[in-house]
Write a protein that binds this DNA or RNA. Structure first.
Lengths: 332, 332
DNA sequence: CTGTTAGCGCATTCAT
DNA sequence: ATGAATGCGCTAACAG
């Protein structure tokens, strides 16, 4: 409900009795301006409630001082943590981070990318929905603008990548589990996600690599609902004890909730291991043992990648293990 | 890393041997164009990989088909649920929802609002950080564009409001608690948030209104860390049992985690009640009794408010109670 | 240090 | 149905 057409630089210039250039120079501070005129301009702008029109500026400069972030889903706490940390990495004025949710859909993801490209963002950060099917979106982005894939990647695109070494994460899990559980006596089950995303893919690979190749595996999606369902299946199959390793904390929380609601004990009968290190892992009871990703470091790394726009490059960070109470503290 | 300057309508027109007007009309479909030319234009656009420049379009049309959302913090699961549901409400192509996180800061919130206004968004949705101190931002927004406050409001601004009746929510809590707990024998403690936001304010009012005015009250912020700290204080004060009502699920989850880690039993010794109805409430063990907000309905309501831009109006939704296991199922 | 001029890319007149 | 011309608001290049 704009009460009136909003003021432009021409309006300010007229009121201040100067040229639009002087208004522009005064307000954007790009060049020295006589203090007397400066005052006149500032007052006129104040009086008219002038606000710069960034669309005009962007068209002229062919830059927008904007970075776009496309996430698959904001309700997934790991993605919202990434979005929040990235926002924080852009907290100094100068560049605005804008977030678009793909709502789990490839079409919506494509729309988000098109939208940001059309808006002429200076860089685009993308958590691809799918390891193969997001290829068109990632390539389109990379062809137009500095593009960084976060957490997940589509292979073979001209985009940078920032993420964690998922296989190393699973190695940490193996080290820990094998030191506190007798793997020859206690079965391991992996509750993962279908390898539609590189992270799901790599975590599954990690399991196959570090644990026995015959490790039973249940694959679904990155959700607590899937964790509950998987736990239900495990119980229905007659398991009375196991070490359940999951592909994500949200899955682990679903598994844990179901086990506890069914009266099973953790970690005595079942052990549960998460991945990501979201805040909710520490809130569970028992608290969740999980692989923590250095989200803050990753966000800062993206920031510096964008500031110095070099050629595409890949950055793998090392995760660390957070010991919780869903795994035993010492050899059982 | 744009390999080359990207193609403009002039480039497409040249290649197709037509005027830019024809290109514009063909690609935006605003007017009838001869099928033969249409084909030529489409082919040329395809060949050049033409992508419309929305900045140019926006400057010309003085509209952007964009709605901005400014949230205080994306890591708060209630806000990210709102952001996600609102994204979904704008899932049909036509209007893009862009999200900006204020990172809990009034300055950053102001920057987000200025940024969206400068980008000429068609409407702005705002979850104000502070009940009084966000006044400047809300007013600036409302003066320039159709503005809707969500979940929290600054009183006396020319902006619409969509939220839940917090007092009614606390009334539901009172009804439930008084029916399953003997309030004359079992103390009630409120773990709330400082009344810096209208929601915190109204929930505290609700407690004072429906429960005894002498109800002990601990006020902090909307975080799990605060919930843990409050629970620690309650135990340190020597309480051995109480019904703990909280201002938010995240607080309740922190309270619950601390109580359980300290070996207290819920709901036998302590009862815990949340507010918001986020997904994690159902994952807790015991599952959290909470007041659920109709987030999806609220998001749709905002969408229709924006589509039909009438005068500012307020919309209070009715919450409902979700029974969990942190409160007894029947009279204790 | 200031003003004049031009043009970023597009949609929309106004002519034809 | 098409093309030529105009201008959205701004900054940068150029003269002075």
């Amino acid at each position: 409900m704009p009460l009136t057409r909003s003021a432009t630089m021409a309006d300010v210039a007229r009121l201040a009795g100067v040229s639009v250039s002087t208004v522009s120079r005064t307000l954007s501070g790009t060049r020295a301006v006589d203090p007397a005129m400066q005052r006149k301009v500032t007052e006129a702008a104040e009086q008219l409630g002038y606000q710069v029109n960034l669309v005009g500026r962007a068209l002229r400069q062919t830059r927008t001082s904007t970075v776009g972030l496309v996430v698959p889903d904001l309700e997934n706490p790991y993605f919202s943590a990434l979005a929040q940390q990235l926002s924080r990495a852009f907290s100094d004025p100068g560049i605005d981070l804008l977030v678009f949710s793909a709502d789990g859909s490839l079409e919506t993801e494509a729309r988000g990318v098109r939208s940001f490209l059309g808006r002429q963002v200076d860089a685009l950060v993308l958590i691809p929905v799918h390891e193969q099917l997001s290829e068109a979106s990632v390539s389109a982005a990379a062809a137009a603008v500095h593009t960084i894939q976060l957490d997940r990647q589509v292979a073979g695109t001209a985009a940078s990548y920032v993420g964690v070494s998922n296989r190393a994460g699973m190695r940490l899990v193996h080290e820990h589990v094998s030191s506190v559980v007798d793997l020859s006596a206690q079965p391991v089950v992996y509750v993962g996600a279908k390898p539609d995303s590189s992270s799901a893919h790599e975590r599954l690979d990690g399991i196959r690599r570090w644990f026995s190749p015959e490790t039973p595996t249940l694959l679904g999606d990155f959700s607590a609902a899937w964790g509950r369902e998987a736990a239900a299946r495990i119980l229905a199959d007659g398991w009375t004890g196991a070490t359940i390793i999951t592909a994500a904390d949200v899955i682990a929380l679903g598994v844990l909730a179901h086990l506890l609601h069914q009266g099973r004990s953790v970690p005595a009968e079942f052990r549960v291991i998460g991945f990501d290190g979201i805040g909710a892992a520490a809130l569970a009871h028992p608290s969740l043992t999980t692989v923590r990703q250095p989200v803050e470091k990753m966000a800062r790394s993206i920031r510096s990648l964008i500031d110095s726009d070099d050629k595409p490059s890949s950055h793998w960070f090392k995760p660390d293990l957070v010991l919780g109470a869903t795994s035993p503290a010492s050899r059982m």
